[in-house]
Design a protein around this nucleic acid. Structure first.
Lengths: 257, 257
DNA sequence: ACCAATTTGTCCGTATGTATG
DNA sequence: TCATACATACGGACAAATTGG
């Protein structure tokens, strides 16, 4: 090691496939390439970038994974918007790998779900209220199947967020509920009587939304979430242990048009 | 189209590179491959999967982009945890591409930042409080440079979230502040007197955290955020128009170890 | 400090299945 | 139906960088 101070930073040439990905990415981010537009064929990209097809393909795989480009039914490349579910499942996975605790999830849920229901009270349309009620009816019909109820519960909370008409909040809260499907299922499996409390809370909240009574909606949402935590504790689980995680669907899976 | 009901679904074979990515992904998610472990050389993966090296490489690019695999200084592949900044910048980009409005961002910020400061009041360590104070001192020193203050403001809010010790909340709030660096910069550029209000609010909040006075901390955070919205409005901008978006750093950029 | 082996990055050519017109 | 275009996948090759003796 030389004693003199280093004059230059190490030159760090990015590989060509990454430069390809970044170049295409810039066009999309800047809006010069819009969602739905075709990206051109691989051969065309080869010609424009002056690199080999393998190199182009590696760059394309990165953007495909990022959700910035997709392939239609004919496998041709088109520009696409990264969709919520895609991002949410990625966030969920990351949180699980980082071993977040139930306490972290529950505290975040308290904040996010209550905020969502408050905004939903102001902005819910008759259509989404009908969807919420249909969801509860289905939940009542599934009254013995814990896994089905857990799934419908998640959808119900997602509908509340949709009713709030705030996409930032909608994206922020998604991973918390996704991570808790197995938890809710386990609770209802052991304590089937919890289902009626869940259903009642859902009805009370939707009723309050319909009457635009924000405080009542928040009160019942709070009770609903406290019930959920109590159920978790009654299972004998530790609040500060990492949540168990079941695989939902693959991060890298591809949605065909 | 045949009149008879279709008996079979269309067979939809995923491409080999994607199967490669999914296979490796499963090993990581399940914990059989842990962060930091080497993944093996490309030649080894070629041997195990029985596919061509180009195919393996395309699969690897997807996982690299997803943050599940990283390359160390020697360019060898190791398993890695997707990091917050990586996910946050991706979420930020998605929200920008979906053209969320300032109103959506501001409302979400009100919820998330106030929740963060409340939890920070309970859990902040002396170390992070010192970091917060150092940040404000730097902000005072940069008192004329709007862009620098905006940057430090973002860091200050990130420190609050870190002090709250809730990683779910930490990840959820990140995109809202990232998207607002340019907004804050523009406000301070036009109304330099806003800097002293910003600095005062930061001091008051950190003081309240130090004394564990949650209500005062929340009160000042609320004022701070209302100031921010007022500044935005005084610029003559529409709350319900999509936020402007400046590119932060590339999604596909690679962090070398 | 030098050398040999390994590994990644990149390129080339080719074959095959499938979608489109 | 047929021809063309295109994405997928394969095999082989070489240079540059890195590793390990």
């Amino acid at each position: 090691m030389s004693v003199a101070a280093e004059r230059f930073e190490r030159i760090n040439a990015p590989p060509a496939y990454q430069l390809v990905a970044e170049a295409i990415e810039r066009e999309i981010i800047s809006g010069r390439l819009r969602a739905g537009e075709p990206l051109g064929t691989e051969a065309e990209l080869v010609r424009q970038f002056g690199v080999n097809r393998s190199t182009v393909r590696e760059g394309i795989r990165m953007l495909e994974q990022a959700g910035l480009i997709r392939r239609d039914a004919s496998r041709r490349l088109t520009v696409g918007l990264p969709h919520y579910e895609h991002l949410a499942s990625r966030m969920t996975r990351a949180l699980a790998l980082h071993q977040v605790t139930f306490r972290e999830l529950w505290e975040a849920s308290m904040v996010l779900e209550i905020a969502a229901v408050e905004q939903a009270t102001m902005r819910a349309t008759p259509l989404v209220i009908a969807e919420l009620e249909a969801n509860i009816a289905k939940t009542e019909a599934a009254a013995s199947d814990a896994a089905a109820i857990a799934e419908l519960d998640t959808q119900w909370h997602a509908l509340i967020a949709k009713a709030a008409r705030n996409r930032v909040l909608e994206l922020a809260r998604e991973p918390t509920m996704l991570l808790n499907v197995p938890t809710t299922g386990a609770i209802l499996d052991t304590f089937p009587e919890g289902a009626s409390r869940l259903i009642k809370a859902h009805w009370m909240i939707v009723g309050a939304i319909r009457r635009r009574e924000a405080e009542e909606a928040k009160l019942w949402m709070r009770r609903h979430l406290v019930d959920w935590r109590k159920g978790f504790e009654r299972l004998g689980k530790e609040l500060d242990r990492p949540v168990d995680y079941v695989e939902l669907h693959s991060v890298v899976s591809r949605e065909r048009g």
